[in-house]
Nucleic acid binder design. Structure first.
Lengths: 347, 347
DNA sequence: CGCTCGAATGTAAAGCTTTACACTAGCATG
DNA sequence: CATGCTAGTGTAAAGCTTTACATTCGAGCG
C-alpha cells in the first residue's frame, strides 16, 4: 500500500486510474468497470485490478467522477436551526443510511433565514447536491414548487410539511399526539388546559392545535380553550409562561407546550411565580430532548422516534432518486412519556 | 434570466461557459478570466460577459472547476458529538467566515468513534476537502501527524489541543478559567471543593485540573483535592454527583464541573439527595449553554466566546491555506457568569 | 521607421473518469 | 461451415473549466 510521495509543495498527486491500468495491464475502461460494474469483468481481471489498486494506493477522483456522472453523491439536510438539540438524532439517522449508500450529507443551517435556504437550493441545479431533505417549512414556497415540479430534483420532508404542496413526507401524527396529551391531562382532572403553540403559521402546530381543540370538544370543554404562541425556544416559553400564569387572572391548571424547550421555560416561569408543579400547574412538553430528564421537575413529554424519522426520510429520498416505488407518506408513532411535571390538579 | 428548459427526464443541462462565450462573442478563456481575474479583461468585454451570463443564466460547474483546480472549496469540521449544544454556536461562527470566502463547511460528526474521524480525513488527499477544523482530540494520532507533516493538508484545532503535537490552535486558557472558578469558590468560603472532570486523558481537562490544583495549593488546600471523571454528558454528571455526595462521607461543599451538562446532572443528584443548592452545595459549570439559564437553580458557569472561536479558527485555517502569515496560537478570553448555583456554604 | 513591450484575447491541452461504440475470440446453432 | 451471439476488452470522446502558451494590435521610444 504505497502512498504517492509528496514533494515540497502542493503535490498530493494521487495515482489515477491510468496508473492502475498500467500496473494491471489493462485499459482504463476495464479498471473503471471493475469498480463500477464488477460483474462485467472476468474474475482474473477483477483480481488483477484489485491488486493493482492496492499496490499503487489508488482512490477515485470524485471531482472527475461527479463531473462525468453529473451528480455529487451529496444530500443537503435543511434545518431551521442547528442549535436545537431536537435535530441531532434525526441527523444521525439520516447519516447512517446515507453513508451506507455512499452519500454524504451536507447540513444546511438556515437559522430561520429564507435567503440561506435559497442558497442551499441553488446547489441542486448546479449538481452540487443530488437531493434535499427538508426539516423545516420556513422555505420560500416558490423554490419548493419549482424543485418539486422537476422530477429530477428530489425533495423529501421530515417532521414538517406544507399545507398546500404534497411532498413525500415522513413525520408523526401531530393531531393524534396532541389528542393523546390532552386526553391524558383531562383524565387527571384538568379542565383549564392551555396550549403554548409554536409559530401559528407552522402546519405541524396547526395540527397539534386541532388535536387540542378536538379533544377539548369531545369533553365539552371548548369554552376553556386558550392558545398562545411561541417560537419553540426557551425564552419564548418563559415569557409566554409568565403571561399565561399572570396572577389575578384565572390560571390554566395545565399547559401543553409544542416543544420541550418552551415547556422548560414555562417551568421556570412557574417557579418564579411560586407555583407548585405539578400541584398547581401541570406541564407537558414535546420532543423528549435530553434535558427533559434533568430539569426540575422531570418533564412529561411526547417522544418522537427521531433516529427512525431520519433513517426513513433518507431511505425515501434515495428510493425516489433511484426511481423505485416508494411510500410517499410515512407516519411514525409517538409515545407519551409520563414523568413528574404532570399530576392531578390540587383541589 | 432564462433557465435551460427541462425535458421529461434527467436533463437539467445548465448552460456552460461555451454558451456564454458564444453569446458574448469571445472565447471561453475570456469568460473564465472575466470571472476569476476581472482585472485582466477590458472593461467592455467584462460587461459583455456579465450580460451574457445573465442572459443565458449561467452558473459555473463546480465539479469541473474542482477537477481542474484540484480543490473542493470545502472545509470539514470534525465534532466529537453533534448532539452537544456547545458546538452549534461555534459552527455558526465557522460558517459565517467560510461562506464569505466561498467555502462550504461539511460537518463531520464522529460520535466519539475514531473510525469515523478517519473516514473524514480521507477526504483530504482525495481533494474532497481542502482543510480540516478539529473540534475534538479523539482522533487517531497517526492521522494527525501524517496530515500535519504535509503542508498542503491544513489542519487547525479549535477548543481542544494535543499535548504533543503543536497544531495551529484557537482556544481559551483552560488553566486560567479553572483558576478563576476555584478562586471564586474559595472567596465564598469553600474549602472542600471537588472537580468533576471530563475524560481524564483529554488535554483541556488536564489543564483545568492543573488550574484547580494550583489554586488549591495557593490557598494551602491541597489536602482537600478530590477529582472524579465524567464524559461531559448529563448522565455521567448525575452519576458522579451521586457518588461525590454519597451520604455518610464528608461531602464537598462545592463542585467544579467541566461541562454544563454534567453540572446539571449534579444538580439533579443534589436534589435527589435533598441537598440545598447553593446552601449545602455550590455548583459551577463550564460553557454557558442555553440550558444553564433554565435549570434550577440557574447555573453559575464559565462562558466561552463560542462564535468568535469558530470565526477565528476558520480565519486561521483559510489564512494557512493561502500561505498568509498567521498567528498559530490564539487564546480567547472567558468569563465567569455568576448565577444562582453558587453561594457561601452554610455554616 | 523599426523595434519592443504590454494589454487583450484566442487556441488548445490538461485535469480524471465514464461510457458509447467497436472489436475479438470463442462457442453454439442451423 | 457459415452465422450469430456473448463475454470481455479496448479506443476515444465527452463532461466543463482553467491556464500555459501563442497571437495580435497598438503605443511608445530611440
Amino acid at each position: 500500500m504505497l502512498r504517492a510521495k509528496v514533494s515540497g509543495k502542493r503535490n498530493h498527486s494521487m495515482p489515477t486510474i491510468k496508473d492502475v491500468a498500467r500496473v494491471a495491464g489493462c485499459s482504463t475502461a476495464t479498471v473503471s468497470r471493475a469498480l463500477a460494474t464488477p460483474e462485467k469483468v472476468s474474475d482474473t481481471t477483477r483480481e488483477r485490478v484489485a491488486q493493482a489498486i492496492a499496490d499503487v494506493g489508488y482512490a477515485p477522483n470524485v471531482a472527475a467522477r461527479n463531473l462525468r456522472r453529473a451528480e455529487s453523491k451529496t444530500i443537503v439536510a435543511l434545518l431551521p436551526d442547528i442549535s436545537n438539540p431536537f435535530f441531532s438524532e434525526i441527523i444521525n439517522g439520516m447519516e447512517e443510511v446515507a453513508h451506507l449508500a455512499g452519500y454524504q450529507v451536507l447540513i444546511g443551517d438556515c437559522e430561520h433565514d429564507p435567503a440561506r435556504a435559497e442558497a442551499y437550493f441553488e446547489l441542486l441545479p448546479t449538481n452540487q447536491a443530488d437531493g434535499i431533505l427538508l426539516l423545516t417549512a420556513e422555505v420560500p414556497m416558490v423554490l419548493v414548487r419549482q424543485a418539486d415540479g422537476q422530477s429530477s430534483f428530489p425533495l423529501v420532508m421530515a417532521c414538517e410539511f406544507f399545507a398546500d404542496i404534497d411532498l413525500p413526507t415522513v413525520a408523526i401524527d401531530n393531531h393524534q399526539a396532541a389528542c393523546h396529551a390532552i386526553d391524558y391531562l383531562i383524565s387527571l382532572g384538568h379542565r383549564r388546559i392551555a396550549t403554548l403553540s409554536g409559530p401559528a403559521a407552522n402546519p405541524i402546530c396547526k395540527e397539534r392545535v386541532r388535536g387540542y381543540h378536538d379533544t377539548l370538544a369531545a369533553h365539552g370543554l371548548v369554552a376553556e380553550a386558550r392558545i398562545v404562541e411561541g417560537d419553540f425556544g426557551f425564552r419564548s416559553g418563559y415569557q409566554q409562561g409568565l403571561a399565561l400564569l399572570e396572577p389575578g387572572r384565572t390560571r390554566p391548571t395545565a399547559i401543553f407546550c409544542h416543544s420541550d424547550e418552551m415547556a422548560i421555560g414555562v417551568l421556570k416561569a412557574a417557579r418564579q411565580l411560586g407555583l407548585a408543579v405539578p400541584g398547581q400547574l401541570s406541564v407537558v412538553g414535546f420532543d423528549n430532548i435530553g434535558f427533559s430528564e434533568y430539569c426540575e421537575p422531570e418533564l412529561t413529554t411526547i417522544s418522537q422516534p427521531r433516529n427512525e424519522i431520519g433513517q426513513q426520510a433518507m431511505r425515501l429520498l434515495l428510493g425516489l432518486m433511484r426511481g423505485e416505488p416508494v411510500v410517499r407518506r410515512q407516519t411514525l408513532s409517538t409515545q407519551l412519556i409520563v414523568r413528574k411535571s404532570t399530576g392531578r390538579p390540587d383541589a
